[in-house]
């Protein structure tokens, strides 16, 4: 569950990273747009795979908890 919370933070980091290597405005040499694009799609793909792995695990955990007899969920994203 903590991993599920950390994932968007990792995502934000990956998506904001290109800002660091972006050229100063006016500097025309710049970076390769195609390579930047490739990087972003790669990061995207990694996040999607991680989310898929986490998602299925979280669902099974949830279902485990909802089974009769077990305690209701005490964890809360709002804490």
């Amino acid at each position: 569950m903590d991993a599920a919370r950390l994932l968007p933070i990792l995502g934000a980091f990956l998506f904001l990273l290109p800002m660091l290597w972006s050229p100063m405005p006016g500097e025309q040499t710049g970076r390769s747009t195609a390579a930047d694009g490739l990087y972003l799609f790669l990061a995207w793909a990694i996040l999607i795979v991680l989310a898929a792995l986490l998602g299925s695990r979280l669902v099974s955990i949830e279902q485990e908890k909802r089974r009769p007899g077990s305690n209701p969920e005490t964890d809360d994203a709002g804490d």
């Binding site: 919370r5 994932l7 995502g11 999607i48 979280l58 994203a77």
Partner: peptide
């Protein structure tokens, strides 16, 4: 994308 992978 960030909102959805952060659905939790």
């Amino acid at each position: 994308t960030l909102v959805f992978i952060g659905w939790w």
